[in-house]
């Protein structure tokens, strides 16, 4: 089954500063005690939000100026730590449709591709420029185009990077990979037979 292609994500953006933001922060483990992903969106960054609130500060997710944002602006090594797909699921279910950052942990990146959430990279300076832009002007219009590999923010064009395989998966609608893996199943069975440990040595 081929899914709808994902070529473009447009909307406003949400700045989330910080390096090495781990998946325990994106969605604390206690919210994983469930057999569905439903309702995760409301709990994204819950502990970070509560701790800021306690100090009288506001997390960007609780800042009404950024409500409705579809593009998340993050820094280095975003999504490190646990392999929980609940992390991109929580962001996606919270309305995020693309993440723009300096770099991503590999498992987070792969999980995001698998659920149709493109993650693209930009230099530290450019991400910082965009975060500053949005903090000053939250309604700035963003448009991410995976086909041309560009992000247009308030008329200024940035060149973004995404691994060729992931870009191809989004553009071709192959981002939900199971069907593709089942396409030549006889080849899988052939290979399994050749593996000594499957055959029992």
């Amino acid at each position: 089954m081929t899914l709808p292609a994902i070529r473009r994500v447009s909307g406003t953006a949400l700045p989330l500063r910080g390096d090495d933001v781990d998946t325990d922060r994106i969605i604390p483990a206690r919210f994983l005690v469930s057999i569905t992903f439903e309702g995760l969106g409301a709990h994204a960054f819950e502990d970070d939000r509560l701790s800021l609130k306690a100090k009288g500060e506001t997390h960007p997710l609780d800042d009404a100026r950024f409500w409705g944002a579809r593009i998340l602006l993050v820094n280095r090594n975003f999504g490190c730590g646990s392999s929980r797909e609940h992390a991109p699921q929580a962001l996606f279910r919270g309305g995020i449709r693309a993440v723009v950052g300096e770099s991503f942990s590999e498992i987070f990146f792969g999980n995001s591709v698998a659920i149709g959430l493109p993650c693209v990279t930009l230099s530290r300076d450019s991400v910082g420029e965009l975060q500053t832009l949005v903090e000053g002007a939250p309604k700035s219009a963003f448009s991410l185009d995976l086909e041309s590999g560009t992000l247009v923010a308030e008329g200024k064009t940035f060149s973004v990077s995404i691994p060729a395989n992931a870009r191809e998966a989004f553009l071709s609608g192959h981002w939900d990979g199971t069907s593709m893996l089942l396409d030549r199943f006889e080849a899988v069975e052939e290979l399994a037979k050749r593996l000594p440990y499957v055959a029992g040595f």
Partner: peptide
């Protein structure tokens, strides 16, 4: 280590 969509991939296709 893999995510849940990949768990689905491996369950269904190994």
């Amino acid at each position: 280590g893999i995510g849940t969509s990949q768990v689905r991939d491996v369950l269904a296709s190994q």
